[in-house]
Write a protein that binds this DNA or RNA. Structure first.
Lengths: 341, 341
DNA sequence: CTGAAAGCGCTTACAG
DNA sequence: CTGAAAGCGCTTACAG
């Protein structure tokens, strides 16, 4: 077993004090340029690396962020919503860019996750990612806040809830895509997705949907609402439950792409043609959505931007500021599944 | 700002020494049961958590694993191969189960990633995940080994390369699925996927494919090989390049599901019916594969098992053992895209 | 510009 | 069973 070099070893070789080594390695302007270069050369030669535990302990910080990913409770062990995975990617990149490491952890909503990350100095702050069932969340968020943990939540900004959150403008997304459906002639709808307090994102999308129907002068009963959670299976069953009345529906607005993929599957299995017999749109613009048959019209959330915003906001909090909640813009992605584009 | 309690605060309140607090909190049998309970109660009350930096520094370990995920070099910023994401999920779970935290980081193969994780005591070991372009890797792996870093690589076990690796039996997978294709009557093939030193997984799948052709007594030229990397786009182009001869091909063996998804897209766009005109099979069993039209026959790698094996192996290394490389079994998943099942 | 020293908050060998 | 003390490897205020 190789023994790791310490700053004392370097100091010894360089003929300076350990303090000077530490300063040189941190690029302190206090150190003579020549000395600094010499020290760095020796450090490289010995393959010396600053011990993070010691450094963090001394500085009382960790330069690490923790990402807690909440699984959809019903999801099977190996499946994770592709949208969140894509967020995971962008958050990882954003923290790396900011010079922070990222500790990743999957949590079940039901677990006792109030999370020993910041308390233990393992992380300077926490990012919470998942469809927020805020009814269940709430107490845990309060506890985090009580302990003055720095955290940011992905999801709908919501006055009533503890902590800051960043989310996409789900209302606007639901509004825009519905208006598009109406503009190309669709008049009757089914909204697939549980829209209640347990799924505020879906609820906002649904409200945007209804608002568009109203504002375009269609009767309020032009849409029907069917519960579904964000899985293909659930989308499949939702469509099955509507089969008896399928003729009366022009367009399906699925609250997520996963639901839409399952819905299209069910329609195909029942010989309903998309988009000829019925239009289908989704939400999230997950990678698959381009490759379904037909390609899925959907609402894109910019995960890159969102990830950056989350990290930036959290970092501000860690630096003692109080950054505001943020609502990210959303974009329509028109493809074939909604009919005449 | 709340001041964090330390073990001294607890000691003070409990009327014992700080050493005893430390012992009690670590469930040392040396401590009187009553004292232990009292200390734990006080710790809870003060919301005390052991400082990981201090604890790790003292113990010279981190109880943390680092996962380096290598992106396919051509992949755009926000896309990550779903197969690896699924591995990510299972690795995260497996490390949590083992009581380790997981530091996740995306790396570009081109970056200088020899990775200050173990050297800095940020992690006790490293997991490398990605399609291994081992030609490029090699030097970096050697360097890791030289520094006596504990690491494990996902990929084909390979005598020639530094370090231990765990991978699925790609040869067997390629063999099995090809034999199935032959058994249901297909006689001519195209293999889509770059099969050279830069993509050893694909190469092994290709070799299994060829072996099956030989062992079933078909002529060696019953398959043609077209380069493709693991993206839908690449699968799409690969099929396009074969269109002039498409009639001569019974079945496409795509080296990954992503390639297959793109290939099926291209076939559809060119009015070639799957599976009636041509069969298509993939590899990986990514979530989408169930929902393509038609559903994709593919080879499943058990990511759950694989993740656990990686973590277990690495932990053994950390404990000073020399666990062997491992080849994980693989399963055929028969769906509609290959024709008569 | 440099060094000696204190101290971050633990764990654990040593002594009792 | 318990305590006093050393020490993990740094960073940084203090003194020069």
């Amino acid at each position: 077993m190789k023994v790791k070099a310490t700053s004392f070893d370097i100091a010894h070789r360089a003929g300076v004090s350990q303090s000077t080594v530490s300063r040189a390695l941190r690029d302190s302007p206090l150190v003579n340029q020549e000395t600094r270069d010499k020290i760095k050369a020796i450090a490289q030669e010995l393959n010396y690396k600053v011990d993070k535990n010691a450094s963090n302990l001394r500085q009382q910080q960790s330069r690490t962020l923790a990402l807690l990913l909440f699984e959809d409770p019903t999801t099977d062990d190996s499946l994770i919503n592709p949208f969140f995975l894509s967020m995971l990617g962008s958050i990882t990149r954003a923290s790396a860019q900011a010079g922070y490491d990222l500790l990743v952890s999957f949590q079940n909503l039901s677990d006792d996750w109030h999370a020993d990350y910041e308390d233990t100095n393992k992380a300077d702050g926490i990012i919470l990612l998942g469809y927020g069932d805020y009814v269940d969340y709430r107490d845990k968020l309060s506890k985090l806040e009580e302990q003055e943990t720095h955290f940011i939540r992905w999801g709908a900004p919501d006055e009533e809830h503890p902590g800051v959150s960043i989310g996409c403008d789900n209302f606007q997304g639901g509004f825009d895509i519905t208006r598009h459906l109406i503009s190309i002639g669709h008049k009757t709808f089914a909204f697939l997705g549980g829209a209640d307090k347990h799924a505020p994102e879906f609820m906002a999308r649904y409200q945007g949907h209804c608002k568009a129907i109203k504002s375009e002068g269609l009767p309020l009963d032009s849409t029907r609402h069917v519960d579904a959670i964000s899985t293909e299976e659930s989308g499949y069953s939702a469509v099955e439950s509507l089969l008896p009345d399928i003729e009366s529906i022009n367009a399906f607005f699925c609250a997520s792409d996963l639901i839409a993929v399952g819905a299209m599957q069910a329609l195909r299995d029942n010989n309903v043609k998309v988009p000829d017999d019925v239009a289908v749109v989704g939400y999230d613009n997950i990678p698959v959505s381009r490759f379904t048959d037909p390609a899925l019209t959907t609402v894109a959330q910019d995960t890159m931007l969102a990830g950056e915003a989350l990290v930036k906001n959290l970092l501000l909090q860690i630096n003692g500021e109080k950054p505001p909640a943020q609502l990210m813009p959303v974009n329509l992605v028109l493809r074939k599944s909604c009919g005449r584009t």
